Computed example of a mutant assay.
Amino acid sequence: MKEKKTFAINGYIGIIILILMALSGLGLVILGIGMITTAVNFTFIIVGVLLLLISAIFASTVTIVAPNQAKLIVLFGRYLGTIRENGMFITVPFTNKLHISLRVRNFNSAKLKVNDVDGNPIEIAAVVVFKVIDTAKAAFDVDYYEQFIEIQSETAIRHVATKYPYDSFEDTDITLRGNSSEVSQELSEELQRRLEVAGVEIIEARLTHLAYSTEIASAMLQRQQAKAILSARKIIVEGAVGMTQLAIAQLEEEGILKLNDERRLQLVNNLLVSIITDKGTQPVINTGDVS
């Protein structure tokens, strides 16, 4: 199905025309009754009755379309078209008029429990902002398009959540917690592909809730803390090695110290311990040999 325009005329102009038709029909009926003795009176009566019937039938098709609303016109099971303009219209008689909202709406998903790419159970939820852009697809290609949007949205959220870890300490990894913009963009694209059949445009999709499941929240917090400590230690060690190399090189270049391998090893050990330790170091002052 594809949306198309249908026959419709301005309601105010149409009502004026229908009133004139009804008055003309009434006048012809009265004229025909007054000429009951002549042969032409039945023609006046028949034409007048037809005009009255036509005006009554078309008067029953008056349709009011509110802003950002649409009316689908269906004649005996056949889709004729859609009226998108707001106002009052007169359209094809004997038709059903289906109402579709064109307003921007949002859907808040429930908190879903899924496993991330590492197999950790997490809770995730999102808000989806959408609007209908093809009324024919929304009405006829899917059953209850709003329910269809809800189910497909939850399916897409589950699918995207299983592709990434909840968190990682590697800068190159995309995570649900650390890359919310990228994840939201992928979720929007996934939803657009799934909901195109329903004539829906996804305006935005954003994560609104993200957390570890309650049964593993405490254990995962300890794991996060351990990973954070290891990551921090790695940075500290790399920095300490660089600082030690720089200090020894500068001392030797300026001629302050002339170190053999044993003394250099001892100095490196002392510097690394001083820099890396998380507690205050106690300096030892060498006063020389005591005889």
Rank of each mutant, 00 (worst) to 15 (best):
L102I: 00
A138P: 01
R177Q: 15
G27K: 15
I9V: 05
Q152M: 12
E215Q: 01
L259W: 15
I124L: 02
K5A: 12
R233A: 14
K279R: 11
F7E: 12
I36G: 10
Y144R: 08
L207K: 04
L50M: 13
I45V: 09
Q245K: 11
R263K: 15
S180H: 07
I73N: 14
I15Y: 04
Y145Q: 05
G34D: 03
G27R: 15
A217H: 09
S168I: 02
L80P: 01
D167F: 10
D167Q: 11
D261I: 08
I19C: 09
V160E: 06
I13A: 07
S24M: 12
T95R: 14
A247W: 09
I256V: 11
E253H: 15
I45W: 06
P283G: 00
T37Q: 05
H159R: 15
I285G: 07
Y145M: 03
R105T: 03
L259S: 13
R194Y: 09
A247E: 14
F58Q: 01
T287F: 05
I64G: 01
G25L: 10
F94G: 01
G288N: 08
F94T: 02
L31G: 12
I248W: 06
T63V: 05
E186P: 07
L251G: 04
T281G: 09
V237A: 08
A249W: 07
D134M: 05
N260D: 06
V160G: 04
H209V: 09
D289W: 11
R103P: 01
N270Q: 08
V268K: 02
T63W: 04
E215A: 02
V127H: 08
V62I: 03
T95Y: 13
T43Y: 09
G81A: 09
A211E: 15
R105K: 10
H209S: 13
I149A: 04
M220L: 12
A22K: 07
P283D: 02
G11S: 01
L98A: 09
G255I: 13
T37R: 05
E85W: 05
G48D: 03
S184R: 03
T37G: 05
I13R: 04
F94C: 00
L50N: 15
L259F: 14
V114P: 10
S181E: 11
R264P: 13
A156V: 05
F76Y: 08
I13W: 11
E204T: 06
A138D: 00
F94P: 03
L50R: 15
R103W: 01
Q282N: 14
T91K: 00
K113A: 05
L191C: 13
K2H: 07
D116I: 15
I124D: 01
R105Q: 13
H209F: 14
A39M: 10
G81K: 05
I229H: 05
L23Q: 09
N120L: 14
V183L: 06
G178E: 11
L53A: 10
L187H: 06
V268D: 02
I90P: 00
I64F: 01
G11F: 01
A8R: 01
Y164Q: 01
E262G: 07
R177M: 15
L53H: 04
E253Q: 15
L271R: 13
I216A: 06
F44N: 11
I83M: 07
I235W: 12
F7N: 10
